[in-house]
C-alpha cells in the first residue's frame, strides 16, 4: 500500500478537561498515550466513564485535546480528520431515507455524483449480504441487518481509520458473534486501522491485535497488551476455547478487574457525577 503510513494514530500525552454546568473543571482523560499502527486492530477496554468516547472524538477531530497532541498519519489533527469513518452503538441511519440512500450518503457527502454513489452503495450492500433490501427503510429491518447497513455506510468511503464506539453493544449474544465475524471478514479485505471501544473483554481479545486497558476518572492508560493470536482467526465463538485466548483473557482481566470494582464502588456509592461532563 502506497499510503500505508497515513492510517497511523499517535496519541501523545493527551489530557481533556471539561467545564461542568456547575462551573467545576472535570478531567475526563489525563496524559493518555498510545499508538495504533496502520492496519492494526486496536481495542480499548475500561470501566464506564473512563473517557473512551472522548478519545475517539479527538482522533476524529470533532473535539480538541486540552493538552498533548493527536496525530494521524504524522499530521496533528486540526479540523475533521480525513479518511475516518465512525460506527456507533446506535446506528447513525436517517429514518426517512432508504437503506440504499443511507449507504450512498457517505460518497455524496464526499462529492460523488448520485449515480456513482448509488452504484457503490449497491456493491457494499451486496458485500454485507443485503442485496434485495435496498428499498427498505431502517425501521423495517432487524437489529442485525441495521448493523450491517451501518457497517456498509462506515466502510463505503474506504476509510484509513475505522472508529467503533461499542458498535455491537446493544445486540444479543448470537447476533453480536455473527456481526463480529462479518466485521473481521470485511476488515481483512481493506485493512483500515481500527479503534474499537468496548466493555466486553472477550470481544476485545477475540477481535484485536492490541488491547488498551484504561482506568476511570480521570481516564488514563493502565496497560497495553499485544494479542498474538494468529490471523485469520476464524469464528469468534470458537477462538474463546483456545488456551492462548484464555491465558490472555485472564491476564488482562486481572488488570481490568480492580478498575471495574473501583468504578463500581464509586458509582454505586453515590449519585453518578462522571457522566455530566460529556
Amino acid at each position: 500500500m502506497a499510503d500505508a503510513n497515513n492510517g497511523r494514530i499517535e496519541i501523545e500525552g493527551v489530557t481533556k478537561r471539561f467545564l461542568t454546568p456547575g462551573g467545576e473543571v472535570f478531567t475526563a482523560i489525563k496524559d493518555v498515550s498510545f499508538t495504533v499502527e496502520p492496519g492494526q486492530f486496536c481495542a480499548v477496554v475500561g470501566p464506564t466513564g473512563c473517557g473512551k468516547s472522548t478519545t475517539l472524538g479527538m482522533v476524529s477531530g470533532l473535539d480538541r485535546p486540552s493538552e498533548g497532541t493527536v496525530k494521524v498519519g504524522g499530521k496533528v489533527v486540526d479540523g475533521i480528520t480525513d479518511g475516518v469513518s465512525f460506527m456507533f452503538q446506535a446506528d447513525a441511519l436517517l429514518p426517512w431515507k432508504t437503506v440504499l440512500a443511507n449507504v450512498a450518503l457517505g460518497p455524496i457527502f464526499k462529492g460523488a455524483s448520485k449515480a456513482e454513489a448509488q452504484a457503490r452503495a449497491r456493491d457494499w450492500l451486496r458485500r454485507v449480504g443485503l442485496t434485495g433490501f435496498e428499498d427498505r427503510y431502517p425501521h423495517q429491518l432487524s437489529g442485525g441487518m441495521r448493523k450491517r447497513v451501518a457497517m456498509a455506510a462506515a466502510l463505503i468511503n474506504e476509510p484509513k481509520i475505522l472508529m467503533m464506539d461499542e458498535p455491537f453493544g446493544a445486540l444479543d449474544v448470537q447476533t453480536k458473534a455473527i456481526m463480529s465475524n462479518e466485521l473481521l471478514g470485511l476488515w481483512e479485505q481493506s485493512r483500515p486501522a481500527v479503534l474499537f471501544i468496548t466493555h466486553d473483554l472477550d470481544e476485545a481479545v477475540a477481535l484485536a491485535d492490541k488491547v488498551v486497558v484504561m482506568t476511570s476518572s480521570p481516564g488514563t492508560v493502565k496497560a497495553v497488551y499485544d494479542i498474538d493470536l494468529p490471523r485469520p482467526r476464524g469464528s469468534v465463538q470458537e477462538i474463546r476455547f483456545e488456551p492462548r485466548f484464555l491465558e490472555l483473557q485472564h491476564q488482562i482481566w486481572d488488570t481490568l478487574r480492580e478498575e471495574v470494582e473501583r468504578a463500581y464502588a464509586r458509582t454505586a456509592g453515590g449519585p453518578v457525577t462522571e457522566g455530566k461532563a460529556a
Binding site: 456507533f88 426517512w96 457527502f109 464526499k110 468511503n157
Partner: peptide
C-alpha cells in the same frame, strides 16, 4: 451520533444542516 457521523463522512456544516438537521 447522526450529526457526528455525517461530519466525519466529510459533510460541511451547511450540508449537515440541510440533509440531517432540517429533516429531523
Amino acid at each position: 451520533d447522526l450529526i457526528e457521523a455525517a461530519r466525519v463522512d466529510g459533510a460541511s456544516h451547511f450540508r449537515v444542516f440541510r440533509s440531517v438537521v432540517l429533516p429531523l
